[in-house]
Amino acid sequence: MRWENLYVAGLGAYLPEQVYTAEQAVADGVYGAGECEANGYRAVRVAADHETGPVMAAAAGRQAVERSGLAADDFDLVVHASVGHQGQDVWTPAHYVQNEAVGGNGAALEVRQGSNSGLAAVEVAASWIAARQGGASRTESGGATAALVTTGDAFKLPYWDRWKADEQVVYGDGAGALVLSTRGGFAKVRSTASRADSSLEPLYRGEDAWTAAPFHDGKPVDLAARKRHWLTRHEGAYDEAIARINQNFGAVLQTALADADTDLAGTQWFVHANMSKTIVQWGFHGALGLDPETTVYDWGLDHAHMGGGDQIIGLNRLFETGRPKPGDLIVAAGAGIGFMWTVAVLEVLDSPQWV
């Protein structure tokens, strides 16, 4: 989708203070030495008991809203994205984030699309405010003008074992926030694109697909076991899945780049998920010919995979370092179970005042 008059006006992040190194996790017997060496993660941030996903998301949201300079009445939408437990069952965390971060009377929605949740929420928010620009006025300037997107997850035992839930992924706690505006910002959203392949849905459902309630057996989520079941159902299952993933990611990336009137060589920065060393080297840096210096991946190794927030938190980190310059193009790419891929292309217009 090619966008006109759509901007990033604010970014924010919240990272818990407690650091738990992979080396210490191995020494504590909660993480395997072989997995530590292969995956390359150095550390995670660990949320305190009161730092639930929505609490951290609200903190990141307040920062992004403050940096945007926009008022509560400017926001027509809040979208909260997450992966894991949000601190309470049968509850609407998006409204908590809205109340704590921005207030106002806009709509509040939740997106749960795995590791692609953050970027999927950005595209939902973009579509929402773009479709309502000419509608009934929420502000004196007329129409919907802004949306707040937040992500937040705290991966806690006994429900989630951050070190063992998945063989090639370690989960870190944290939150991110992004403000979209139709009235201006420091970066222009040139394009977004999303693509799904529901034939891969069983990959994370597993053999024992249906349960009566969350955490029904009292055991931590075991994504690795679910994947093993599906990928070993016949000899070529693994290769088929990899081929589909590569094909779909390549297609959505090319669509977003074409809609942004560029190609990968014409971009300067690439923000992807904080996945394991082998996945990143094979799926991103090697496959696309990326220079790691054009990413925030090395920084990400000290935070691991923060659910659906890696891209938004990574964008915040990239701008806080002051590296992007006016005219630079940034690609943000996500993939999530389901499967779904989203890619956004941003054009840097200026260095934010808060850098």
Rank of each mutant, 00 (worst) to 15 (best):
D74H: 11
D222P: 04
L329V: 04
G103I: 07
W341L: 05
V8R: 00
A136S: 15
H80K: 08
W128V: 08
A43E: 05
E140F: 12
L329G: 00
D302I: 08
E100G: 06
Q268C: 06
G135K: 08
Y204C: 05
G185T: 01
R42C: 10
T52Y: 01
V296F: 05
G106L: 01
Q63L: 12
G218R: 12
R317K: 14
I330Y: 01
V345D: 01
A224K: 04
L6W: 00
P326M: 08
P93L: 05
H50D: 13
A213C: 12
A333D: 07
D73E: 15
E293S: 15
A38Y: 13
D222G: 07
G61T: 04
S194L: 08
D217S: 10
Q18D: 14
A213H: 14
G327H: 09
A101L: 03
P54V: 07
D261A: 15
V348Y: 00
L109W: 09
L6I: 05
V102Y: 00
V280P: 00
G34I: 08
A107M: 09
V271S: 02
Y96M: 13
E37H: 11
V79F: 04
P292E: 12
P93K: 02
A187I: 04
S82K: 06
V26R: 01
V102R: 00
A147Q: 03
T294G: 08
H80E: 07
A126R: 01
A154K: 01
T92C: 15
W3R: 03
T139Q: 06
N274C: 10
E235P: 04
F155A: 02
D239Y: 14
A260N: 02
D74M: 06
V348A: 02
F339D: 01
W91R: 07
Y204P: 00
A47N: 03
E293W: 07
F270T: 03
Q133R: 15
N316P: 03
